[in-house]
């Protein structure tokens, strides 16, 4: 049980990186960027291909970051320079990446079993030094799970602090303002095309990195592993915002990590409670639909409550209407 929760948390820490990427586009730039569905696979595919052909897993992370950024840059160009609506730009990048990902991998999936990963070194170190087996705690892969958790925590919290700094700088402020008000930003002499492209580039770079880390955690990459990633990111983001608040900017970023972990715990829980795993994506989509429609639902319920009061309430006042 402990290990089940631990591995869920570790997984959440990796998906947190995607959640932060989604937050940058959806909340900061105010753009629904679909390219992430392709970029997460791109990062995974490239890392898997590189590792299986003998490159260093660390180098594969850098490469995944770089190609993710390139994909985000492409979406940015489609949207700003070619005037294609943001949503469609993302979809076009996503579809293009499907073909590209197949070419990168050379087949529909690559297994990384018994190959070197970024977790391997730490895993070996933990095996040799913690002595979990001696105290009867050693599950089959407990050390691996711990290694994933540690790497995930270092990377995701590192990214949060880096982004907190970046979005406090002059360029970062300009990007934040762009998501608010294009008119104002241009009137202050900032090229909104540039700020949008930078935002999309950073976001997709992170998502590519996330894909590479996930592929190495699960020991494989498949061409369709990105399907639904945007919805998972949105669900995690909303859970983070609702449960962990929006007070200041650093906390908003932190809450993305906690949101991603909570999302994984919720999924693990509903699976334990007997939800068929086929229904997982439907469940996630319903969560997002519910959360995004919450303001509207509140409005409707307030109207209903008022109508109800007008119809049945105020008995003391005698006849409700003359």
């Amino acid at each position: 049980m402990t290990q089940y929760i631990l591995s869920t948390v570790s997984l959440g820490l990796l998906w947190a990186i995607l959640t932060i990427g989604v937050f940058i586009t959806f909340r900061i730039l105010n753009i629904a960027d679909m390219s992430v569905e392709g970029t997460i696979t791109l990062g995974a595919a490239l890392a898997a291909r590189m590792i299986s052909t003998g490159y260093s897993p660390y180098l594969s992370l850098l490469a995944a970051l770089a190609v993710g950024m390139a994909a985000g840059f492409a979406t940015g160009i489609l949207h700003t320079k070619l005037g294609i609506p943001a949503l469609l730009s993302g979809i076009l990048t996503m579809i293009s990446l499907y073909s590209i990902n197949l070419r990168v991998m050379g087949k529909a999936n690559i297994s990384l079993l018994r190959m070197d990963t970024v977790y391997r070194g730490l895993e070996t170190f933990l095996k040799n030094n913690l002595g979990l087996h001696n105290i009867g705690l050693g599950g089959i892969e407990l050390e691996k799970t711990l290694a994933v958790g540690i790497v995930g925590a270092v990377v995701s919290f590192g990214i949060v602090f880096l982004l907190y700094w970046f979005f406090g700088t002059e360029i970062g402020s300009a990007i934040r303002a762009t998501g608010n008000n294009h008119n104002m930003v241009r009137a202050q002499g900032i090229h909104t095309d540039t700020t949008i492209i930078i935002g999309l580039t950073i976001s997709n770079g992170l998502v590519g990195l996330c894909g590479a880390l996930i592929a190495q955690m699960q020991n494989f990459a498949t061409v369709d592993m990105g399907t639904g990633a945007i919805v998972i990111g949105l669900a995690s983001m909303i859970i983070g915002e609702v449960l962990f608040g929006k007070r200041n900017f650093l906390l908003r970023f932190m809450s993305m990590i906690f949101g991603a972990i909570t999302y994984r715990l919720v999924i693990a829980l509903v699976l334990k409670l007997g939800l068929h795993s086929d229904l997982l994506k439907l469940f996630t989509a319903l969560t997002v639909i519910f959360a995004l429609s919450l303001p509207k639902l509140k409005e409707i319920s307030a109207t209903l409550a008022r109508n109800f009061r007008e119809a049945f309430g105020n008995r003391k006042g005698g006849m409700p209407h003359a």
Partner: peptide, 23 residues
């Protein structure tokens, strides 16, 4: 103005009007 940003952040954006934004 940018609604989600603080008063001082808005002023800071305006203070740098026409300047190259840096890190």
């Amino acid at each position: 103005t940018a609604a989600d940003m603080e008063i001082e952040e808005n002023l800071a954006l305006a203070m740098r009007r026409g300047q190259r934004r840096t890190l």
